Amino acid sequence: MSTTRPYSPGDRGPEPGGASGASEGGVAAAGASGEGVGASSGAVAPPGGRQVRRLSFGDESGVVPLARDFTRQALYAWGWLPAASADQRAAAEDVLLVVSELVTNACLHAEGPDQLRITCDNKVIRVEVADRGTGQPSPRTPHRAGRPGGHGMFIVQRLCLDWGVVRTPGVSGKTVWAELGAPA
Rank of each mutant, 00 (worst) to 15 (best):
V63C: 01
Q88I: 06
D131M: 04
G112N: 02
Q157C: 10
S56A: 13
H143M: 12
C107Q: 13
Q73D: 15
I118S: 00
V129P: 02
L116R: 04
W78G: 08
G112V: 03
R126V: 12
V103Y: 00
P137L: 02
C120K: 12
L75H: 01
A110S: 15
A92F: 03
H109A: 02
C107A: 09
P65H: 01
D69E: 14
R50I: 14
A83L: 00
V64W: 04
Q51V: 08
L108Q: 14
Q136W: 11
P137V: 00
D121F: 03
D69P: 02
P46H: 13
L97N: 05
V124M: 05
V95N: 00
D94I: 05
E93Y: 06
H151V: 08
F154C: 10
R144C: 09
A45M: 07
S56T: 14
V127Y: 01
C107L: 15
R54G: 03
A84K: 13
T134G: 15
E93P: 01
A74K: 04
W80Q: 07
G149V: 07
L55P: 04
T141F: 12
P148L: 08
S138G: 15
P46E: 14
W80P: 01
K123S: 14
R132T: 13
H143Y: 15
R54Q: 13
A91Y: 04
L116P: 01
T141H: 14
P142D: 01
Y76S: 08
G150D: 09
V63Y: 05
D87M: 06
A77W: 00
T104V: 09
R132L: 14
R147T: 07
V63L: 02
G48M: 01
C107D: 10
Q157L: 09
N105F: 06
G58S: 05
K123D: 15
D121S: 03
S61F: 13
R126S: 11
T119N: 06
V52L: 15
L81P: 02
D59Q: 14
A92K: 04
A45G: 15
R72F: 06
L55M: 05
A92M: 04
R54V: 06
V98Y: 00
T71R: 03
V64D: 04
R68H: 09
E128R: 06
D59P: 09
Q157G: 14
G149W: 10
Q51C: 08
G135P: 07
L81A: 10
M153V: 11
R54W: 09
Q88Y: 07
A74Q: 08
P65L: 00
A67D: 00
M153C: 15
G146Q: 10
S138F: 12
A106E: 03
D131V: 03
A86Y: 09
R140I: 13
G79H: 11
V103S: 04
L116W: 03
R72E: 14
L96D: 03
T134K: 11
E101A: 05
R53N: 08
G79V: 06
V124L: 10
D114P: 02
I155R: 07
G49Q: 10
A92P: 00
S85G: 10
C107E: 15
L97K: 06
R89N: 09
I125W: 07
G152N: 04
D87C: 05
Q157R: 13
P137T: 00
Q73N: 11
C120I: 11
Q88W: 09
V127Q: 02
A130S: 15
L108W: 10
A67N: 00
G135Q: 12
G152Q: 03
A90V: 01
R68D: 12
R132P: 08
